[in-house]
């Protein structure tokens, strides 16, 4: 499936989250998100607060900042993964997908995650499943797809993840038999199989070598023509290579992560408005 297959239509903010089976039709110009005054807690401890930003459709938004600034916590708030962990994790504020609050009263977090996929820091393919089954795991575990649909999905998603040529002859091999970089692309293919509106990536290259990293970055630039991507990275060069817009997070003395600066990547790296941003990107701390 390519972009050219996307049927144009008009975006309507009042329309409910579109039906997934209709996802190829999509919303013209892609899907956008808006974060409004989000704060996240681990039990009683506040980890991030007062975060607001708009994530543009069909673009890559990078979140950068030093360790412990709440980057990962923030991105996990965007598909309601933050509340999954044990303990009393919670989120306040609202996060809109195409104008609809994913924290709305009647919204099921499971449903949110079908539309907002996530790729994790460490490649985590299901070790007991084959490459084929890994790609379609999400489909198989949420409905009863036909064999044809599965075959098509596997080829389409592995192609989109730039992995098809490397694994097409060993689809029945275990997902764990692949290299780290291949595993991470497999995880991306697995997310794409759900036809998400937004793809979240939490430091997807931090466990990979430079060549594998380069492949993933190329892939991100390819995928953003069709998907809205948010990527957390501790690598500023990576942010400058892949991101259209970049957000800089920083935690102060009280260890609560806040959004310091948000804007077009070029501007943030060449002409930051906040002195703390400048200090960080010039390597004076963090």
């Amino acid at each position: 499936m390519t972009m050219s297959e996307q049927v144009p239509g008009t975006h309507n903010a009042t329309q409910p989250v579109p039906d997934r089976n209709n996802a190829t039709t999509g919303t013209a110009g892609g899907h956008w998100m808006q974060v409004r005054d989000v704060a996240a807690y681990y039990g009683d401890r506040m980890a991030i607060s007062e975060i607001s930003m708009t994530i543009k459709p069909r673009s890559t938004t990078a979140i950068i900042g030093p360790s412990g600034c709440g980057k990962s916590t923030f991105i996990r708030c965007l598909n309601r993964m933050h509340e999954v962990g044990l303990g009393n994790n919670r989120v306040t504020g609202s996060v809109l997908l195409d104008g609809h609050d994913i924290y709305g009263r009647s919204i099921d977090p499971v449903q949110v995650r079908r539309y907002i996929g996530m790729v994790f820091q460490r490649p985590n393919p299901f070790p007991s499943m084959s490459i084929y089954d890994n790609v379609v795991a999400g489909i198989k575990l949420t409905r009863s797809p036909s064999r044809t649909e599965l075959d098509e999905t596997v080829e389409r998603c592995l192609n989109q993840a730039a992995l098809w040529d490397e694994v097409k002859d060993k689809l029945k091999a275990s997902g764990a038999s692949l290299s780290g970089g291949q595993q991470q692309r497999l995880c991306i293919a697995r997310s794409l199989a759900m036809q998400p509106h937004v793809l979240l990536m939490d430091e997807p290259c931090s466990a990979l070598d430079p060549i594998a990293t380069y492949k993933i970055e190329t892939l991100i630039n390819e995928l953003k023509r069709q998907y809205t991507i948010v990527i957390v990275t501790h690598n500023m060069q990576q942010a400058s290579r892949v991101a259209d817009e970049t957000a800089f997070f920083l935690a102060g003395e009280e260890r609560i992560g806040k959004l310091v600066e948000f804007g077009p990547t070029n501007q943030l790296f060449t002409n930051p408005t906040d002195p703390r941003t400048e200090a960080y990107i010039t390597g004076r701390f963090g």
């Binding site: 993964m81 079908r114 575990l141 759900m194």
Partner: peptide, 12 residues
């Protein structure tokens, strides 16, 4: 991480 991977796919 396995549970996380599955949950992030929107699996109940």
């Amino acid at each position: 991480t396995l549970r996380e991977a599955a949950l992030a796919l929107g699996v109940p």
